[in-house]
Design a protein around this nucleic acid. Structure first.
Lengths: 246, 246
DNA sequence: CGAATGTTTGAGAGACGTCAACCGGTGTGG
DNA sequence: CCACACCGGTTGACGTCTCTCAAACATTCG
């Protein structure tokens, strides 16, 4: 027996989800617009995490489904020798563990940490799953989300094995631009970029010093501008060419 | 309305699945032993592919679920510049697209090819899914399969970014040994190894020449023996040490 | 048996890593 | 309010891992 409405729900007013600026960009927007308060009633609580705090630890079995209301996060693994590989980044509107949407949850093969100050909306897993199984357009949207989500992961996998440092960096920047634009989180070609260089390094599989150099090359060639956590793409065609590996 | 029993089923006798030597090692073994002929009735056909033939192409939406009855396969992506990255290998008993077990299928972000002569058993997707939703032990087995499956993929992701050539190779060999042993496909520390060196290279993110050299080092140091598609691990402790990255 | 395909090996080049110093911002405490 | 430490980023010098090119060698297949 599962408590669909957990007590923590007290703080969440049903209207909140509907009013959320991100609502129309999330996977569950069809469900939300079909039944404006249904989803909100399934919401358990919101949670806050400070920068670099652990949201989920490797081996945990997620028992709820959360979305990022604000802030960024990243998923990573650690090798026996202590080195870290970042698998993917989560931006506002993303589901933290899309895997939980499918079938029985299983222990996570990675940890998840907050990149900056993060606010999470968490939902009852089964109720959320059920709410997202009602309409055809919702199913299609889920399928497209999964396609994009896993597509990005496999592309970064291939980048690691088969692209140069510059190619990988360009590819990652373009991925951010695309995803953030679809969420309405860009201003022209400018967007928030809360990663530190060691995050970039661990995502791209590079030494931090070399990441700095590669970034500097991009700046000197007028491809991007990056200061105070704001990234602007100055020459997107050139960036694409580098990403395609000239 | 979906035709559970497609006409192609004609060739498949219901007893075959039960008699299959791999049956007890597959994900669906609980279902199979609970209802020995139920699954076989859901089977549509068996299919054969020659070495290096394409089983599924990137972008296709798998409409059935297949398992490898014999032979190996691999999943890979291709970069705009033509380079190839292999994401994972499939061995006998594996489900070709475990992703199809979850929810609505979506276009594959990779292609799948046969490594050697392959025989596939394909099942009706929805009927297979339904048949695997009946028992608790079946759910648990599915969860453990998913854990292992995605765990391996993420580990290889991390290997690409954060391990040396030798570390990656050792890790991959150990993964094969583990998986094949669990399927009863090893003889001592010896097992079939149908990969060519360019497959290894594309899986490890290395140049083929350097793959050859790394392999040669392993041989000269008495770690492995590899000839005529048979691999023997001669010194597993040393191999593990290299894999852990000393 | 020959041709095509896969593997091994050598020599040299290049990309990326490591070590170390320095620089600039930020926060903290006296 | 300044001093200082700390953290993250930048830069230089140098080392090395891995790639590329090229040729020889081995193996499979027609």
């Amino acid at each position: 027996m599962e408590d669909i409405l957990s007590p923590d729900n007290a703080g969440a007013s049903p209207a909140e989800c509907v009013a959320c600026a991100l609502a129309q960009y999330t996977v569950y927007s069809p469900t939300l617009s079909a039944d404006p308060i249904g989803l909100a009633n399934v919401r358990k609580e919101t949670r806050k995490y400070g920068s670099q705090k652990t949201i989920l630890r490797e081996g945990e079995v997620p028992d709820s489904i959360s979305t990022l209301k604000s802030g960024w996060a990243f998923r990573f693994g650690r090798l026996p020798n202590g080195r870290r590989q970042i698998y993917s980044f989560l931006i506002p509107g993303d589901i933290v563990t899309p895997e939980s949407l499918w079938r029985t949850p299983y222990p996570l093969p990675f940890s998840i940490k907050a990149l900056n100050r993060v606010e999470l909306c968490s939902f009852n897993r089964r109720a959320f799953r059920a709410a997202l199984s009602t309409s055809e357009s919702q199913e299609q949207r889920l399928a497209r989300m999964a396609q994009g989500y896993f597509g990005n992961i496999y592309r970064r996998f291939a980048d690691l094995g088969r692209r140069s440092a510059g190619g990988r960096l360009a590819q990652l920047i373009l991925e951010f631009e695309r995803r953030l634009r679809h969420r309405g989180l860009t201003r022209g070609r400018t967007f928030d970029f809360p990663l530190r260089q060691d995050h970039l390094a661990d995502a791209l599989g590079l030494a931090p010093e070399y990441t700095s150099r590669t970034l500097m090359t991009f700046r000197k060639e007028g491809l991007i501008q990056l200061e105070r956590q704001q990234l602007t793409i100055l020459n997107i065609e050139a960036l694409r060419e580098i990403a395609e590996d000239e």
